[in-house]
Design a protein around this nucleic acid. Structure first.
Length: 499
RNA sequence: GCGAUCGUAGUCUAGCCUGGUAGGACUUUGGCUUUCCAAGCCAACGACCCGGGUUCAAAUCCCGGCGGUCGCACCA
């Protein structure tokens, strides 16, 4: 399944393997014209739902961060793994795992030197060959670089977009109303030097995130619009079931999830309900979406509770959103490290460091899930034997393809006119006159174009064109003058809107 | 990073064992056919992962590297 989707994605240049001309390294993908358009429309849909409708703000911050920032945020010491190698067989192991297996022992936050000391004291040897282990090293997932010509000014390429938001928080807060709650978001690239990138877009070294940091007063962890979604349902995979090794999940409304304390607070439950709406708009079915309450040991260093949204795919459950209750961890850390007060003034005159709930979306993974769930096989009752993508019209890279039945007799010219007039009206149009008409239908289907307009000899006579529908192949004739209105009405059920 | 396995046009593949003009299919492009679901006919474009060695001669044999896939481990 995944393979077929990737095949067609590569064939139509939805995706392009990066650096293909040289020895490509894993974990990097380029987006071709179709993939980029798809990505842009998904991001715009997200902006509409999570920013515009909510009154939240979007900013853009830099990719390269000086070491001090990541030191304060905890990424330098926590964002990676302590590894130790066997000097006899050469195998590598997680130092903390070996220690913790030995007994009641947790290594959270321990430095490599401490771990080396502990390993020596506990006389831990290689679990494979009983050989001696070397010193504990640190594998950090961040890409390191030098800033400026002087050695020693170390920078890292950001491992998440969130830090930039925390650094700019105070200025944005002061200039945009100075009231909690306030949401500040960023869409952009992040970078992680993964050990082994796998499975297409699932684990990349350079990937796009859509992150929203929702700052609120910890004494009232409420969302003003919670009522709108309190009865929305979703599926939760609880910690208890995970510990039992069972796959059983429970279905709850947002309100029930808060009451039963399965989510840290109402704000997170609010976003979870919105996330369900977002993914269902993208044609990911309700019953393949589940929220997994992360176990304490998998929770990141900054977190007061994480709930991931996972999508069931042909390669297993894939995390597409990490919802994190980051508390005041980040602002507090930056405040302490920089010496600047990052608390805000409340209406009653007191000061508080805001708490943060963060929904963090993986764009590339979302695209991969969409490709899988929009993928349709040909054959069967269909009159065609090729594959296509059933993208909703509002997210299709191209909304309409204009195709002259033939190149000659003025059909090309007439079709070009129609294509250009639709472009002027704001439609994303693809014009294609090469090959047979059947071939062009197939090509349009493969990139998920919902409507094909065919210009034929009747068009020259009476100005009508054929609209051919992607999903059932049916056709109808329409006056070319009223096409924009007709196409709008056809797409009406697909326009971005909340229920 | 370890183990297994693989590397020939955009895709699938023949050739490799036994060294001697790299062949086919689909796709793509142009042309013909008054042509609506990858039709047909004609033509064109396009490949041996990289480097070294052996040899008169390497896609083929040998060595090294790089990369892919799958397990393990790890991870969002």
């Amino acid at each position: 399944m995944m393979q077929k989707v990737m095949e067609i994605a590569l064939k139509r240049s939805i995706l392009i393997p990066s650096n293909e001309l040289y020895s490509p390294v894993g974990g990097f993908y380029d987006y071709g014209p179709v993939g980029k358009a798809l990505k842009r429309k998904i991001e715009d849909c997200w902006r509409d739902l999570f920013l515009r409708r909510e009154g939240n703000f979007e900013i853009e911050t830099v990719y390269i961060l000086p070491e001090a920032v990541l030191k304060a945020s905890g990424h330098l010491s926590c964002f990676g793994d302590p590894v130790v190698g066997c000097s006899k067989c050469g195998k590598k192991f997680r130092a903390d795992h070996l220690l913790e297996e030995k007994g009641n022992f947790t290594c959270g936050g321990m430095k490599p030197e401490q771990l080396t000391k502990e390993m020596k004291e506990k006389k831990i040897v290689c679990p494979e060959c009983r050989g001696p282990l070397g010193d504990v090293g640190w594998f950090n997932l961040m890409f390191k670089t030098n800033i400026g010509p002087t050695e020693g000014t170390t920078g890292y390429i950001r491992p998440e977009t969130a830090q930039g938001i925390f650094l700019d928080f105070q200025r944005v807060f002061r200039s945009h109303g100075s009231k909690l709650p306030m949401g500040i978001a960023q869409i952009g690239k992040s970078f992680r030097n993964e050990i082994s990138p796998r499975q297409g877009l699932v684990r990349l070294r350079e990937f796009s995130q859509m992150e929203l940091e929702y700052f609120f007063n910890p004494s009232s962890p409420k969302h003003p619009r919670f009522k709108e979604v309190e009865n929305e349902k979703f599926i939760i995979y609880t910690r208890e079931e995970q510990k039992k090794g069972s796959e059983k999940c429970i279905e709850l409304t947002a309100k029930e999830a808060v009451e039963r304390k399965l989510v840290p607070n109402e704000i997170m439950a609010y976003f979870m309900a919105r996330e369900m709406q977002f993914y269902m708009k993208l044609r990911i079915p309700y019953d393949v979406l589940r929220f997994r309450h992360m176990l304490p040991e998998e929770t990141p260093h900054y977190s007061g509770g994480n709930v991931d949204l996972e999508v069931k795919t042909s390669v297993g459950w894939v995390e597409v959103i990490g919802n994190a209750y980051r508390t005041d961890y980040d602002l507090k850390s930056h405040s302490q490290s920089s010496g600047k007060d990052l608390s805000v003034l409340l209406e009653d005159g007191s000061r508080v460091i805001p708490h943060v709930v963060e929904p963090s979306f993986g764009v590339d993974r979302t695209i991969m899930c969409m490709l899988e769930y929009c993928y349709r096989e040909g054959g069967g009752a269909e009159r065609r034997d090729w594959e296509w993508f059933d993208f909703p019209a509002f997210i299709s890279p191209f909304e309409v393809a204009v195709l002259p039945l033939m190149k000659k007799d003025g059909l090309s010219e007439r079709a070009s006119e129609i294509a250009n007039s639709l472009r002027e009206k704001g439609f994303d149009v693809i014009y294609d006159e090469t090959g047979s008409i059947g071939k062009r239908y197939a090509r349009a289907d493969e990139i998920g174009v919902p409507y094909c307009l065919t210009v034929d000899y009747d068009t020259l006579k009476d100005g009508t064109v054929t609209i051919r529908f992607r999903n059932d192949g049916k056709q109808s004739r329409e006056d070319s003058k009223t096409l924009p209105e007709k196409l709008h009405s056809l797409s009406e059920g697909n326009v971005v809107c909340l229920p």
